[in-house]
Design a protein around this nucleic acid. Sequence first.
DNA 1: AATGGTGTCAACCGCGACCTG
DNA 2: TCAGGTCGCGGTTGACACCAT
Length: 338
Amino acid sequence: MNQAADMVLQQQQQPSGYGGGAVACRRAGPMMSAAAATKREPAAAAEEQDHQQQEEVLLRRGPWTVDEDLTLVNYIAQHGEGRWNALARAAGLKRTGKSCRLRWLNYLRPDVKRGDFTADEQLLILDLHSRWGNRWSKIASHLPGRTDNEIKNYWRTRVQKHAKQLNCDVNSRRFKDAMRFLWMPRLAERASASASSASLVAAAAPTTAVVKAAPDDSYDDDYHYHRSPATATASSSSTTGTTTTTSSSLASNDASKLQPAAAGGGDDWAAAADHEFWSTASALQQLTAADHHRGFQDHHGHDDDLISGWVQGFTDASSDDVVSSLWSLDDIWRTMHC
DNA sequence: AATGGTGTCAACCGCGACCTG
DNA sequence: TCAGGTCGCGGTTGACACCAT
């Protein structure tokens, strides 16, 4: 039994939201196929439709079963990956090549890293996304063990949620500035703290690929960002021990949900409102010390809007105590400008 | 306990790029 | 050059888990 197959069996022991043996074929079929077929010659369209209906009967969709996972993993272990359509047929899987490829790349690959994103990883995602936009695959290539799908989901569920809370578009200048001047410094701070707490381990551990893949410290011309020393330190020193992939990386997400996040890990914002406030205040203090702060003010001239936006965002998910603290954030801000 | 809302994430889809004969 | 097959990407969907009421 190879390593990946072993992990599939391990996974079988743990109930998982998806892929726990549920019957496939949730959907009726391809949404576009019938409509597309009717645009052509009636006879040809009918023939194609019949053919597709036959295929739909033969091909499975929806969650993968453990047996299917084992089949795929064992086949790839023996024959390698690639040529997915042929692979699907040869392995006896009633799946499309696409489906097999996706299952392998996003879930079954031995080096897939699972669980919450570390502060380092979040920082890197924000950084790279600000450069490349929704180039998920390109971004994922800089986060060893992470898939484009996972990063995409992270962005859509976490990042866009906070843009919504701030009442602004995720691509707006306002949100990008909030990321750069509030969120990213705080992540860097968290990553740095995580790194220092793990420094003993770090001293003995090899440098990870994140460091190797760290982007050069500049944004494009349209987006003048230069990595601050704090950020650079965090990215180059705190990845140790967080990006190492192991054979247990297939542990189910449900299991990770049940466990507290690792120190410095991707604990949810809303779940730590107190921490949010003090970290934000800290970020603001860093902001005043930043060299580019002057440019930021000059560019915007609406600092109060930005801050009130954050206050509003946090108040949505905060306790009364934290809300009252958050309002003092304005006081901090005014004090800094007096 | 039941129910409705929300978040998460695996899996699907269409499309364009690339490959091959 | 062209047509068909394959691959990879980004967007979207929907089932399930969790939480608030």
